[in-house]
Nucleic acid binder design. Sequence first.
DNA 1: AAGACGTGGGT
DNA 2: TACCCAAGTCT
Length: 346
Amino acid sequence: MDDSAGVISHTLLAWYDGHARQLPWRLPPGSRAAADPYRVWLSEVMLQQTTTAAVAPYFARFVERWPTVQALAAASEEEVMAAWAGLGYYSRARNLVKCAREVAQLGGFPDQEEDLRKLPGLGAYTAAAVAAIAFGRRAVVVDANVERVVSRLFAIEEPLPAARKQIRAAAERITPQQRTGDFAQAMMDLGATICTAREPRCLLCPLQADCMARAQGDPARLPVKAPKKAKPQRQGTAFWIERAGEVWLVTRSDKGMLGGMRALPDDGWSARADGSGDPPVAGQWQDYGAISHVFTHAALTLSVRRLDVADAPGGHGEWWPISALDEAGLPTLFTKAARLVLAQRN
DNA sequence: AAGACGTGGGT
DNA sequence: TACCCAAGTCT
């Protein structure tokens, strides 16, 4: 680390001492307590591609229900998936359970980045973040905030994702030997509150004097990103099958969209193709309209139809009390579909 | 090694 | 409205 890099980390850490966000998974400011690796890991996994506001209530429920990694390791995958419902990217929940069990078996979290990286659900970012924040290891923590801050500080013109190598090298240069956990969180706080994607608040930025993009006059244009692809519009149908105050739910296959989650039966729609429209059983289906839902890589219009039956439809599934549908752990798509039926059903 | 993979909030 | 974006990982 050369001298200008030292100035940057020093300035940023001084700013962090007065401006750190208080978040449920962080120790209170000035606390001398050691970070709990379980909470650090859990929060980091929840925060992957997910806002702090969305994570906060889930984090609170998880640590209340499963206070330790051993407790989480002892939970069933099914109950963890249901508790994760609504947070998205459900493979995270499946990997969370796997990881908790591996860690419990190991007797605790590994304290080296290299070993953390081997755990399911921990990629380059999360392994570095846990190593730095929970164990005080020097690790180069690069997330989307760091990419944005660094690409502006050094006016990196190369578009993402090709710029990753350059950005990592620059982040490595400014990462200090001490307080690397604070440094990582300071970079993320700066990116979240000052060096934002749109309309950065440069006048409030502790690094304004060091920022090449600011000197050039238009920091918001960085980082340059490759153009997005258009997302396809898909059509599908979900089926509400009811019997005596209960609705028929299935569990989706572990692979693919909403993998492993409870769901209403559907017509096989996917991000790649429309559904067939065919119901799972013949009968007098009633039309309840449609909901729309946008995924990362496709937009879906989901028609919802209802049938009242006397016997269970064929195939794998379970009757679920409609009065307790909240506890089924339906992903948001199917929660919307259920609401559509319940709003019109007497 | 691009593409798959959720959801809610901001502009 | 439509688009962008958020503490990425896996295949």
